[in-house]
Amino acid sequence: MSLSDGGDTAEWKTDPFDARRYDPNDPDPWLALYLDHSLPIDPQAKRALLLGARSWSRRWLFPVSRPVVFLFFCIVKVLRAISPRYPNLNGLLHKSIHWGLRTFGSPECNTLILRHFHVGTELLAFLKANAGVDPALVKTVPLKPLTLKDLEDNVFLQHDLNIFNFIIELNMALRAAGKEITPPERVDFSMLSDIEPDFETFPTGPLNRIDIQTAVEFYTPLYALMLPRADFMRASHSLQLDEIVGIYIGRILGTDYHMHFVKNGHPLVTLSTLQAGFRLMMHGLDCEAMHGWLRVLKARQEAGLPLDPRDPTGGPELA
């Protein structure tokens, strides 16, 4: 079918990421990023992220509102210095997140947020299965919400608890056994999926226009206001644990290639909580990239290929 055929023309003209829209005299930066494969990110996640990046809310509401949000964040930090424990409104926080996303979040924003908990759950399950310790010694709560209502079940706070408890319990088990994480005889990828769950149909009302980065920017100071200071600090510091998770994955795989995807900084040098909004976006990107790379390696293993494309011998994981 030629581009002049009506139905096909209408389809590609309404799709901002159709390669047939390419004009060498006016190349679209978002099309370039969509077609780029330097990061092994799931196509659904990349599309949702880029639709948000090119949206009205990200281009206008985000930069205009940032000074106001920053000022509010500074006021919250002063209040939390005075009263670090109270108020503790965790239940109200999760209900407000649900309400805000259902009322204002775009379908792409809501897709990325629910996906993130599935990605995090599978990454921890991968580490748990391949770290060489008794899995019973490392406890996590699987988080795989399918609806925005599911977020009310303490999902955000539990997400932070999961990663810190995982690191503590894993390293306690390794130290007790006098072991380090080393490549297993065969890497277990069985827990990794393409993450295409049956999410609810997200609202598409006239107000559902807020992209994920703008939503994160607005909710970060609310998170600090409605949680005790210790809970917010733990949540903020958890965003820098991507590098630790990446190192663990590297020890399992025997390759550090995926570390090129991790850009959030090692938590031994902590960053300001005022940067938490941007680092939360980077955290989501890091996790999607690591998860995507592991799925690539899973496919290579199933095809009988070496996990590391640079290793022509195959290695012990194919034994």
Rank of each mutant, 00 (worst) to 15 (best):
L207E: 01
F104L: 09
N90A: 09
F261H: 15
F199T: 04
F117Q: 04
S57L: 04
I247V: 09
L239F: 00
S96F: 10
V76D: 00
A276R: 00
D36P: 01
P84E: 06
C74A: 12
W56G: 04
V141W: 08
R229W: 10
A224Y: 03
P29S: 05
E243H: 03
L3H: 00
I249Q: 06
L161P: 00
A131P: 11
R229S: 13
D15M: 03
D231N: 08
G246R: 13
F126K: 06
D28E: 12
T103C: 07
P40T: 08
K139G: 04
A81H: 07
K95S: 12
W30V: 02
T255P: 05
L112Y: 05
D42R: 14
T214M: 12
M290S: 13
V78I: 15
M282F: 10
L51T: 05
A319V: 08
I195N: 04
I113T: 13
D42Q: 13
E243F: 05
F166K: 08
I75F: 03
I168S: 08
W30H: 12
S55I: 01
S190R: 07
G246A: 14
F17D: 01
S65N: 03
F232P: 01
R251K: 12
N208G: 03
I167N: 05
M259F: 10
Y22T: 04
H260F: 14
P197H: 04
V64K: 10
D134Q: 07
L101G: 02
S55W: 04
L35N: 13
L137T: 15
S55D: 02
D211S: 10
F202P: 04
P184L: 11
K179E: 14
L297G: 01
D153W: 07
G284V: 02
M290E: 12
D308N: 15
H266M: 03
L225N: 05
R186A: 15
P203Y: 08
V269Q: 06
F261D: 09
